[in-house]
Design a protein around this nucleic acid. Sequence first.
DNA 1: CACGATACCTGTAAGC
DNA 2: TGCTTACAGGTATCGT
Length: 283
Amino acid sequence: MAACYLSIMPELPEVETVCRGLAPILQGAHFTEIICRRRSLRYPFPKHFPNAIMGVPIVAVARRAKYILIHFANQQTLLLHLGMSGRLFKQEGDPQKHDHILFTLSNGHHLKFNDARRFGMLDLVANETLTAHPWLAHLGAEPFAKSLNPRWLYSALQKRKAAIKPSLMDQELWVGVGNIYASEALFMAKILPTRPAQSLSPAECGRLLNSVRSVLRAAIKAGGTSLRDYVQADGAMGYFQTSCKVYGRKGEACLRCAKSSGFVIQSIQQAGRSSFFCAQCQV
DNA sequence: CACGATACCTGTAAGC
DNA sequence: TGCTTACAGGTATCGT
């Protein structure tokens, strides 16, 4: 099956994969050395980073939306975001281009934060103020939260005059759906990305909720597989490949209806981002 | 207020 | 070959 392959993908599935890969390396250990080769990415690092966490045991690694949360025993949390091109992976040795932070752990592991475009974000926050942090305070629900159901999505979309595709990516509605999976989920749900959000029927909201969860789950599963096969071989944690049915396939045959209709995938701009869809089998 | 446009950066690929 | 341009997974901020 024809498909596009993407090597880096900091939407929810990659962040989840990175967190799962980091947890066994970090939990119970502490940092013995942290070298900052620059003092900022998108924003300046806080002054107490890294000193306030040196030697402090790591108690847990978690994900919220596309943020990585590393919890320390002194009630501080390191908040990381990969931006568009950030990667956090296990690697020892001399820094390469765009390796901005080098971590050494008490258990002998080495980690690097590499980010060519420097849209990544880092902050070190006291736990008591964590949920009020400006990066976290306005985030919507996790897509796998039990509280989400078709009726909730239908109700939430009623207020929105914008197209469904940019609405899907609104992190205040729900979190984790980025530009790739917005197109993929709409294709799976057979809904055009240009439809006004408030025009979706309750049944379509049900299909869309299922589709979003389905594409995210599949990507997380692919990431987990890749993590096992790839990371342990060469330490390149944070990379994995996924295949897309519409994203990046402009001009290629629709994988669902081309045999009968000959339709090809189209690409348009919505709110400054590329959307991919089939005008025949998405309605 | 809701929404779109823009800015932040560098790398890559396409076009000439 | 070399130069220019367009575009790239996200999010905060600005303007309409």
